[in-house]
Simulated assay, not measured.
Amino acid sequence: MGDIKELFLFSYNELKKVKTITTVAMFVALSIILGAFTVPIGNFLKIGFSSLTTVGIGYLFGPIVGSIFGAITDIAKYMIKPTGPFFPGFTFNAIIAGLIYGSLLYKKPVSIKRILIAEILVSYICNIMLGTLWLNILYGKAFLAILPMRAVKNIILIPINSFMAFAILKFMEQHNLRKNFD
């Protein structure tokens, strides 16, 4: 229990550093740029890689900063390029994703197992279950009608996202980028 409390406390203390704030701002900009390259596949599916920025922020600064980053990024992306109506459920998903990545990756060695677990949790909780629920609420589409295609897409993307996250985090680890923020 103490480890979790310490993890959140360390992450909270990251917010007091100017380097953290400026790095998060750059990652928000990077996420917006990557979001511009999102490919829509029908009305209820899209493929993009801006979530890699959330992985990086979670790794560097932990769950508190990751959650705040998720919320800011989601709102900023909507303000710059709205795709449909604003819905706070998707902002909640971004917060949860930042929390998951930060909790599993912060102050821990990079491992494919840890990244895979994080990707599976984010895919299942945020994308498959909650994302489908939000679409159901927003558009009135039957939850079970859109669930299978969203589940298949996310299952296919888990190894792809995991590999990309592993490559990026391994690079960050090998170049001691996290130590620049201690």
Score class of each variant (00 low, 15 high):
A167C: 12
V110A: 03
M129G: 04
D74P: 05
Q174H: 10
Q174D: 13
V24A: 08
F61Y: 07
T54D: 08
K19D: 15
G56I: 13
A151W: 02
S67M: 15
F163S: 14
V24R: 06
I120S: 13
I125W: 03
K113H: 01
T91R: 08
I57E: 09
F181D: 08
F166Y: 13
I155Y: 07
V55G: 14
I125K: 02
P63S: 11
M26C: 13
S162F: 07
L116D: 00
I120L: 15
T54A: 12
S111P: 04
N161R: 12
R150S: 02
F27M: 15
S162G: 13
A71M: 13
T23V: 13
K108A: 14
M79N: 00
A151T: 13
F61N: 08
F8A: 09
I72T: 05
E173P: 05
R114M: 09
P159V: 05
I33V: 15
S11Y: 10
L169A: 11
L157S: 04
I125S: 05
V55R: 13
S50P: 01
I168G: 02
F143N: 07
A118D: 10
L157H: 00
G56Y: 05
K170C: 04
P148G: 08
T54P: 05
K108Q: 15
N93L: 00
L177I: 15
M1S: 13
F8K: 10
N136R: 00
L116I: 02
N161M: 08
R114Y: 08
F92I: 14
A25H: 03
N176T: 14
S103K: 08
L104M: 09
I137T: 02
G62K: 10
F10V: 11
D3V: 10
Y124M: 14
A145H: 02
F90D: 03
T73G: 03
L135C: 01
K19T: 14
A71W: 05
L121C: 11
I33H: 08
K5A: 01
I95N: 10
